[in-house]
């Protein structure tokens, strides 16, 4: 399959900051995911508690994890783009 790079990448001035941001967001999400796993594993009765709009915690938390992934991904992208623009500008100056 022709899976090849489309273009060569330029210098990435923001790489260290982006890596750190990625690590922070990863640990935040992993912690929220871990709480979900712990509740599912040992406090299963809590999963049946109705939380909002007649939906229980299991459904709300599960869908919440999916939506949170999208939101955090969007925030990550916004901040990374901002960092790249700013540091590229600084490097050129």
């Amino acid at each position: 399959m022709l899976h090849e790079p489309a273009v060569e990448l330029g210098v990435d001035y923001a790489s260290k900051k982006k890596t750190r941001l990625g690590l922070i967001l990863f640990f935040v999400y992993a912690a929220i995911y871990a709480v979900f796993v712990i509740i599912g594993l040992s406090y299963t009765h809590l999963m049946g508690v109705k939380v909002i709009a007649g939906l229980n915690l299991a459904v709300v938390y599960g869908m919440g994890l999916i939506i949170l992934a999208i939101v955090m991904g969007y925030i990550y992208s916004l901040i990374c783009t901002h960092m790249e623009d700013k540091m590229e500008k600084e490097a050129k100056q």
Partner: peptide, 9 residues
């Protein structure tokens, strides 16, 4: 889906 977060971040 959570796995994609690991991949992205």
């Amino acid at each position: 889906l959570a796995g994609w977060v690991v991949a992205l971040f």
